[in-house]
Structures are given as structure tokens and as C-alpha cells.
Design a protein around this nucleic acid. Structure first.
Lengths: 201, 201
DNA sequence: GATCCGCCCTGACAAATGTCACGGTCCGCC
DNA sequence: GGCGGACCGTGACATTTGTCAGGGCGGATC
């Protein structure tokens, strides 16, 4: 019996997937969590063979949780299942020790198949996405540039960002300018969108 | 046998829901579409008793399609199933003739139950969401203000927007200013977010 | 030790943005 | 007809934003 942990914030999606996996003869969903910061605890309690993790979760990113999970429960494989096939996400997932990367845009049948392949020791990655990740190259943004960009996502002014990060306003403008340059965009709003699309945040 | 049409862009979600509904003794998914502009055609061909529509779909909004569907196939009830419980969405759904409004954050079991209630002539609406929709009041933005805001979502400059809408730059700035004032925000980025959160775009 | 590189800051500048007051047209409504 | 409101425009203004050219600090690397 394959024991599965499911981390997904949308309740309807989570329920549907759980039902679906439980229909498989050899699978059993032993834990379901709606938030990223509950993943490790739940896994240590339920000891699943494989963890299906969404990336964009409340509390904590599924990617961060994946790295922790691999360290604390190496017997549990990690399969990332996410809405967005962002190149940077795939790269970070691999670095975090994930064994597979699926997009929710694929057919449902792929899910159970992917789980079995992952448990057989294979790596499961969308070929097109892998190509995109390679062609996009690594994340060009420095830590600080990412900090400033993420602080700017919801329309914060330079003063807001400077206050939140304890930087001077001129410095914040510099980082924003650098990020705009590196993303090849024209203003902070475009830079934020470009960085998100690539999974750089 | 209850015949169901399913409009949802995420393939995995669509597949999971279809499987789930087909498990119900008295239901049958007779059509599945991934885009908003395929809804009416598919419905006229398959003649379902109820249509489950997502709102944010490629091609055409599920809300627009709902209005058309009600006009062209009045026997088919409309149930909106969406990720975001935005007050303005609920309001527009009701105006478009929808019989129910579910958020994907609810339990899966609600789905089949809601379908049966809708077919029995009931209206199915999340009570908390209904309250939010009423307290938020109607959309305060004029048509032009919405146009300008939607054109500004992806970081377009004033010049870009003016070109796209064939307005002068000064006029665009005026509409943006008006929208910022009405949303109680500080810049266009916050205004866009606030308008989206309320379902005003 | 010298040399990068990321990081933090400054000051100054041009361009874009947001605000205000104003005049005009068109349309629906009392 | 008069009125209000959505709509389009102008010009001027203060503020914010993005850019550029600097300097200084600490850690890693050769």
C-alpha cells in the first residue's frame, strides 16, 4: 500500500484528489494539509511514502517545506504538483530534492502514474518545462533584489519598502532599478510580473 | 439522470470533478470545456440540465457566458464555481441569471448537493459571501474607469493606455486618479488590486 | 595582499505619475 | 427646457519614480 500525503490549499481540489487517489487499489491518502507550515509535522506523524506538494501555500512555500521534509524524512519522496509551470520553480524544486514536478494542467491520470514512477526511483519531469527551465537560465536576481521586489508586489511605495526592509529610500530605488534592468522591463510593475512568471520570487 | 456541463480551465481539476460527479448515481457529465467561448456551443449540442462554470477562463469570462447561456438555453441552470469569492463576482453572477455560487474552498461534498438544490429550484449562495457582497455595495467605477484600470494591470504606462484606448494621456491620468480616489488607495497598483479583490474588473 | 562581488548608502537629474481646477459635448430624466 | 452625470479634453503643479555616477564596507577567492 502506497501511503500518500497531500498538501493543497484549495479544499475542493484537495478533496477531489484525495478521493481519486483512494480509488486506486494500491494507494491510500494518510494525511491532508491545507498549509505549508503543517507539512513536516504531518509527515513525521503519518510517515507517508510520497508527498504531493503544491508550491503556493499559505504559511510556507511548498518548496521550502520540501527541503525540510527531505532532510527529516528521507524515505519520503517529494512530488511537486502546481498550477504554474514556472522555470524557476522547477529549478528550485530539483535543488530542494524533489523527485518529480507536475503541472495541474495535465490529465488526472498522470498523477497516479507519476506517483508510481517516483516510487520506482525515476524522476518525473515535463520535458517541455525542463527545456524552458534550462533556456531561461538561473535566477539573475540577488537576494536583496528579490526582497525589494516581493515587497513591491502589492503597490507599496518606495517609502513603504524602505521602512519594511530598514533600508534608505535611495537604496530601494537602486535595487528596483537593478531588477528592472535585469528583467528587461520598464517599471517595477512589469519587473514584478516578469520575475513571478519566471518563478524568481 | 442529471446531465452536467463542466467549464474549467485547469485540466486536472476538470478531470477530477468530472470523475467525482460521474461517481454519483444520478449524475452524468455530458460536456467538458476548457475555455469560456466554447460554453454556449457545447451546451447547445449536449443540452445539459445544469452548467458548472468557472469565472476566470481563457477566451471569455464565465459570467458573460452565463448570461448568454441563460438566454439561449433557459432550461439549463447555471452554477458558478470559482476560486475567488469576490463580492462583485457574486453580484454579477446573480445579474447574469445564475442559480448558485460556490467557492472552490468549500468541501467537495457540497458540489453534488448544490447541484441537486439548484435543480430543485433553490438558490445556493454562501451566506458569508452574500453578506460581504451587500456590505461592499455596488461597483462604484464607471465603464471608462474600468477600461483604464484593466489596461493598467500589467504595468502599462500612461502612454500605452492612452494609445490602446485612443485617449489623451491627460485623460487617462484623470481616470486613474478617479479610480484611485474611489478605491481609497494610493497609486494605480493598489487601485488595480483593490478593484480585483472586489470583483470590479 | 589584491580583486571581485554583494551589499548599503548618497546626491542629483530627467521622466513618469498623481492631483487639481477648469471647459466642453452628449445623453437620459424630471 | 433645465439638470446631472458620464465622458473627453487642457494646463499647471508637486510628488514619485527610475537612472546614473559615485563611495565605503565585508567576505570569498585567487
Amino acid at each position: 500500500m502506497i501511503k500518500v500525503l497531500l498538501a493543497e490549499d484549495q479544499r475542493m481540489m484537495r478533496g477531489a484528489l484525495a478521493l481519486l487517489l483512494n480509488l486506486e487499489e494500491d494507494m491510500e491518502v494518510v494525511a491532508q494539509v491545507p498549509a505549508g507550515d503543517q507539512i513536516v509535522d504531518a509527515a513525521l506523524a503519518a510517515r507517508p511514502d510520497v508527498a504531493l506538494l503544491d508550491i503556493e501555500l499559505p504559511g510556507r512555500s511548498g518548496l521550502d517545506a520540501a527541503a525540510d521534509l527531505r532532510a527529516q524524512l528521507p524515505s519520503c519522496k517529494v512530488l511537486i504538483v502546481t498550477t504554474f509551470g514556472r522555470p524557476g520553480y522547477l529549478r528550485r524544486a530539483m535543488e530542494a530534492g524533489a523527485s518529480g514536478f507536475l503541472v495541474k494542467d495535465g490529465p488526472v491520470e498522470d498523477l497516479a502514474a507519476a506517483i508510481r514512477r517516483v516510487l520506482a526511483g525515476e524522476q518525473v519531469i515535463d520535458p517541455g518545462l525542463a527545456a524552458a527551465a534550462l533556456s531561461a537560465g538561473p535566477n539573475p536576481l540577488t537576494q536583496r533584489e528579490r526582497d525589494v521586489l516581493t515587497a513591491a508586489v502589492d503597490g507599496a511605495t518606495v517609502a513603504d519598502i524602505a521602512g519594511k526592509l530598514h533600508l534608505s529610500q535611495a537604496t530601494v530605488r537602486n535595487y528596483l532599478s537593478a531588477a528592472i534592468g535585469k528583467t528587461g522591463t520598464r517599471n517595477r510593475m512589469e519587473a514584478v510580473r516578469a520575475a513571478r512568471r519566471n518563478g524568481w520570487l
